[in-house]
Design a protein around this nucleic acid. Structure first.
Lengths: 209, 209
DNA sequence: GAAAATCGGGATGGTCTCATCCCTATTAAA
DNA sequence: TTTAATAGGGATGAGACCATCCCGATTTTC
């Protein structure tokens, strides 16, 4: 059974990263630590397969390169058999190289890091030995979230709202069907249901319905 | 129907904040913008009731106080009727005061900002006119997340794992029952079910079962 | 004009979670 | 020692969501 540890001080981000890890493994337990102290205590008593680290932790200067390296180095030494993934908001390729040299298997910038990347990152690691994803601005349209929609309905609305011009709806339905292993007709049904809900309740629809 | 806009460049954090807003309102639509450009475009075409802003956006210097003020100021002026909530990782009370003076109704530090705060923040705003929550380290034990548990089961395990010494389990069951409006017996049933699942699958249990 | 795409649904079965009520042992506290 | 708390379940109905198959009408595209 897979065991992971996420070390990140921002609670919402820590929970989001824990969800990401969970989504990548069938059966796993994920621990979350807000501080290096809690993390160190858990590392003493457990063996982890994966450790996710944000080097900007409380008690350290996030602008001090020495501090950042020290944090990661301490954790890597405390869990030599684990895969170490560094996640940071202030990323650059020089720091990525430094962390790679002290044993990190991945270096991810937070900006533009989308849900579902973890499985891709783990693929990168197993094929190339290292995964690098620097922050980049990718969005041109906003995200839309409606509380009246079910998850499936929300997902197809997301895909449709970010549809490139000229792409047929049928292609989006096919893409969703492929991604979730369902029928394209079902995807179409979700879309119709979702749009009907939004229209009925007077919600402003994203451009491109 | 309630309309909100979340402006934050880190995707996972943006989605988490959007979830927080959604959880605070029965029926609402929440837009997410990665950049000031996208946000400005949406602010032109829509009226929002609530705007959540992280001033550290792409294209601006996150250490420049001038840039940070300019970002928030621009957004406040573009949506004068909305409630404005500033969320930042590098918070301090001087900046809080500056943002308050240009019209922000809340200033929240990201570290230790837990799920479910938004309704409390909105209460603060409606009673005091302003809500201030600076970053603080609150955790002494790690969070545990198990993929085999249902949400309800996970929640009662969370509560039980962070139980203060000397507190009876019955009190935790009562607390959960009160928080979710269910029966204390149901909470107890979830706990038993959750623990049985973890034992059966050989998961290491948090201290204090 | 014919074919493909889109619109706008109804109906159904299966699965999962939620919330509750019930039962009997065993252990800890008064 | 008597009471309260904890351990360890079984069973059930309600409701939500998932996934599918079906229908007819309209619009767009070639």
């Amino acid at each position: 059974m897979f065991r992971a540890l996420v070390i990140e001080d921002q609670t919402l981000m820590r929970l989001a990263l824990m969800n990401e890890v969970q989504a990548s493994f069938e059966d796993c337990s994920v621990l979350g630590a807000e501080t290096l102290e809690i993390a160190a205590s858990e590392l003493q008593n457990n063996n982890f397969d994966l450790v996710v680290i944000d080097p900007g932790l409380p008690g350290f200067d996030p602008t001090s390169q020495t501090d950042r390296i020290a944090v990661v180095d301490k954790i890597v030494e405390a869990s030599p058999s684990a895969i170490h993934v560094v996640v940071t908001g202030s990323d650059n390729r020089f720091e990525a190289e430094e962390f790679r040299q002290i044993g990190a298997a991945a270096y991810l910038g937070k900006t533009g890091l989308p849900p579902g990347v973890f499985s891709d990152v783990l693929d990168d690691i197993s094929t190339n030995g290292f995964s690098l994803r620097l922050s980049r601005v990718a969005m041109t349209k906003p995200d839309y979230r409606y509380s009246v929609l079910t998850p499936r309905e929300q997902e197809i609305i997301d895909l449709m709202a970010h549809r490139a011009p000229g792409v047929k709806r049928k292609e989006i339905f096919a893409a969703m069907a492929d991604r979730f292993g369902i029928d394209a007709g079902s995807a179409e049904r979700y879309f119709k249901q979702a749009r009907a809900k939004l229209m009925r309740q007077g919600h402003p629809l994203p451009r491109g319905l």
